[in-house]
Each structure stands twice: as C-alpha cells, then as structure tokens.
C-alpha cells in the first residue's frame, strides 16, 4: 500500500510550495494598514524604491510613520531621513513607532543633496530593512543618476527605500508608487452646540499609481483617526 497522496487536479491548481510562500512573505514588508497591503500586493517590496506621493494633508506622513512602526515592531531596523525636520515625536509615538529604536537623521532644510547623501550612507550600512526619506513639501531637482544609485544600494542590501514627497520625484526609477489625496476632514461638534468642535480625522484617497499589478489598479478610501 502506497502512502503517497496525489491531490486532485482542481486542488493542485491552488497549491503553492511552502518554500515559495516563505520567500514571498520575506520579500514584502507590510505597511501596517491592511487595505494598503491589499493594494500593494502584500506591502512594500524589499530591495526596491517605493514612493508615497501626496500634497499637504493627504496622509503621506501617516502612511510613512505606520510603515516605520510596523517594521520596527517586527524587529527590523529602520531609519527616517527627515529632509524637512518635520517629525513630531508625539505623533510618531501615537502611530506606534518605538522611538528609541528609530534612527532619525534630521537634514538641513532646502538641501535635498544632503538628504539623499544621508539616505545613501544609511543604505550602505546594511541591516536597515526600511529607510524612509521624507523630502518635505518642496519639489527638489534631483538628478536621475542619484535615484539610480539609491535604487541600486537598496537592491544590494535588500532594503526598502521609501520616498515621501508632494509629487512623484523618482519617476520611472520607482518600483511602486502610492498616490494619496485629501478628501475631507472630519470635525465633531458634539452634543453641546456651544462646545468647541473637535477634529476627528481625515478622509483620504489612495491609489496605486505604479506597481507590479500595473498602474491605477485600485482605489481605496482610508479614514484617519486623531488620537488625543
């Protein structure tokens, strides 16, 4: 009597070797927001240059901090290269970022070259799974060669280079790009009309503009909540 088991043809079509599952999980790092993970096919791709593009109030900082929080909570090393010095420590802590484990590089404002140089140094160290680069509100003129070098450094170290900017700056060099847009804020007046209103959150619109599944594959509305 043979103990070998042969799955049916219908079942075999859905079976995936265990090694491939493990490899697939290792290649992606979750954003910490399940809806975004679905959009991106499991999260940010390791060894790639990923973008978050959105203007003021679009929620790009929230997505950035949540991704950092998730990576750090999973035991990875992560760094934030802050091109604007705009990090609010209290807000980052509310987003779940374990502050003592975050490497924060605060660069001089209006010097994108310094920001990119710092990112390259951090990537060169190796061991950092997520290197987030916040370019602030400006639209710096960055040579394409700089992005190519950074992308190559990220690929060598199997790190995620996550760039947040008002618009897509790396352009064709980015492996995946998430576009964000503000829809409307939510204010809560409460029962007492004389009491001051409270900001409850923002509704934002997220769209994958570039990725393995192709551009504009899905649209999603996220609701942010202000933790007070």
């Amino acid at each position: 009597m043979s103990l070998a088991w042969t799955p049916s043809r219908a079942l075999a079509a859905h079976l995936v070797p265990a090694q491939q599952i493990e490899r697939r999980e290792q290649r992606r790092l979750t954003t910490g927001i399940s809806a975004l993970d679905e959009l991106l096919g499991g999260g940010w791709l390791r060894g790639a240059l990923c973008e978050i593009a959105g203007s003021r109030g679009s929620g790009r900082t929230s997505v950035l901090l949540t991704s950092l929080a998730t990576a750090l909570r999973q035991g990875h090393c992560a760094a934030l290269v802050d091109g604007d010095g705009a990090l609010d420590a209290r807000a980052a802590e509310r987003s779940g970022v374990p502050l003592p484990r975050l490497l924060w590089v605060r660069c001089a404002q209006a010097e994108p070259a310094q920001t990119l140089a710092a990112a390259k140094i951090v990537l060169g160290a190796g061991g950092f799974t997520l290197v987030a680069v916040d370019l602030g509100d400006r639209m710096p003129q960055v040579p394409v060669a700089s992005w190519i070098r950074l992308k190559r450094a990220a690929a060598e170290q199997q790190a995620i280079l996550l760039v947040a900017a008002p618009h897509r700056i790396p352009g064709a060099q980015g492996t995946s790009a998430l576009g964000l847009r503000s829809l409307r804020p939510r204010f809560d007046q409460g029962k007492d009309a004389t009491a001051p209103a409270l900001l409850r959150g923002l509704e934002i619109y997220a769209q994958v503009e570039r990725g393995a599944r192709g551009p504009a594959s899905s649209v999603l509305v996220l609701s942010h909540v202000l933790a007070r």
């Binding site: 910490g32 927001i33 399940s34 809806a35 929620g59 900082t61 929230s62 997505v63 950035l64 901090l65 949540t66 929080a69 998730t70 909570r73 999973q74 604007d84 010095g85 705009a86 990090l87 609010d88 209290r90 807000a91 980052a92 509310r94 987003s95 779940g96 959150g201 923002l202 996220l222 609701s223 942010h224 909540v225 202000l226 933790a227």
Partner: peptide
Amino acid sequence: PQQPTVEGRTALAFRRFQ
C-alpha cells in the same frame, strides 16, 4: 506588537514646522 490600525483606521500624523 502594537497594532496602529484599529478597524481600518490609522492614527493621524502631524508635520511640524521647526
């Protein structure tokens, strides 16, 4: 692990002018 996501909602971040 702390879950920053609660029922699909994420803590709102704040960018500070320094």
